[in-house]
């Protein structure tokens, strides 16, 4: 039971990171019906931006806690802003000129953008792993290993708490943004009928750009969390994380915001439990198998809406 609890905590943490990335996939798919394959690399860029900021500010575990918290919030905001510029640029350069072109064209430029970002970071930052000494260590021990001290000790680290709480806060904020604000309404309107939205005075191009900006900002948060949690990044982390998050978005029902969150959580949990109870080598196989099974029985994903034919 203790072991189960530990896996649950780890799984939710991992799932939160996947969920944050998955939102970027699902929002972009929702609004322009395209898979933004460069999104995983935007996540990677976000992690690098965060690393550069942390190194520039000279943060380390020795920094006083109060200052560290303040600095990390600053890093978070700056990383979101800078990565958002990357997201915006990718949309502007690789996708907007091809809007209205045949469906495969933006898919190809997406792969191109992905390779470009990877290679750019590889050349500019080097191909080696970039380690970061843990900034936030320690945590709570939820169990003490039983009376004889031989049982399993369940740990909930401060870092895990930070990741889970930040994710919940961001997702709540995003749900509000999409459901209640004028920007969110116009995004949903563009999702359903872009031409009609334009006729009502919505600047469709700008709305699409903002969708990319929002997705990239969330990916930057995921990047920072990943960096702080695992303490090592390289130029290639975007690929696997991107594929996993994309899987999460599809599992939850692509185009659905709560679906992306749920999908991310599920993928994270499946992976962690599989590694915990069966084998680490086959964790990806497990995650993708579950995806395949769900899609066979629920082609729209868990929370996706079936495609409604337009009259």
């Amino acid at each position: 039971m203790d072991y189960f609890l530990q896996q649950l905590i780890n799984g939710v943490t991992l799932g939160s990171i996947y969920g944050l990335i998955a939102i970027g996939y699902t929002m972009v798919y929702g609004i322009i019906g395209m898979i933004n394959f460069a999104h995983g690399d935007i996540f990677m860029v976000g992690a690098f931006v965060a690393l550069i900021l942390i190194v520039t500010l000279g943060l380390s575990a020795a920094t006083p806690v109060f200052l560290l918290i303040f600095a990390l919030i600053l890093v978070l905001v700056l990383a979101m802003a800078l990565t958002a510029v990357w997201g915006w640029t990718v949309e502007r350069v690789a996708y907007r000129p091809l809007r209205g072109s045949f469906r495969l064209a933006p898919l190809i430029t997406a792969i191109g953008a992905s390779i470009t970002l990877q290679n750019f970071v590889q050349i500019s930052q080097g191909a080696r792993n970039k380690p970061l000494q843990p900034l936030i260590s320690g945590g709570f021990q939820l169990t003490d290993g039983g009376p004889d001290g031989t049982g399993f000790v369940v740990q909930l680290s401060y870092m895990q708490i930070i990741i889970i709480v930040t994710t919940i806060a961001l997702m709540a904020g995003f749900t509000f943004l999409i459901n209640k604000t004028s920007l969110g309404r116009s995004q949903r309107a563009c999702e359903q009928d872009r031409k009609m939205a334009a006729l009502l005075g919505v600047n469709v191009d700008r709305t699409i750009s903002l969708t990319f900006v929002m997705g990239a900002a969330l990916a930057a948060v995921a990047g920072l969390m990943f960096l702080l949690y695992y303490g090592v990044i390289d130029f290639f982390i975007g690929f696997l994380a991107g594929v996993k998050a994309f899987t999460a978005a599809v599992l939850g029902g692509i185009g659905s915001l709560p679906g992306a969150m749920l999908g991310g959580l599920l993928i994270g949990l499946i992976e962690t439990f599989w590694s915990g109870y069966f084998s680490v080598e086959y964790k990806d196989v497990a995650a993708f198998s579950i995806l395949a099974i769900v899609l066979i029985f629920m082609p729209e994903g868990l929370l996706g809406k079936p495609e409604v034919e337009k009259v």
Binding site: R188, D193, M196, V202, K305
Partner: peptide, 22 residues
């Protein structure tokens, strides 16, 4: 007819007022 079918009736009218709100 090209309404935003998945949105509520009120939201349909609010989208039309997007610009002043923005």
């Amino acid at each position: 007819i090209r309404l935003f079918g998945g949105m509520t009736i009120l939201e349909n009218l609010m989208v039309a007022q997007h610009n002043p709100l923005m």
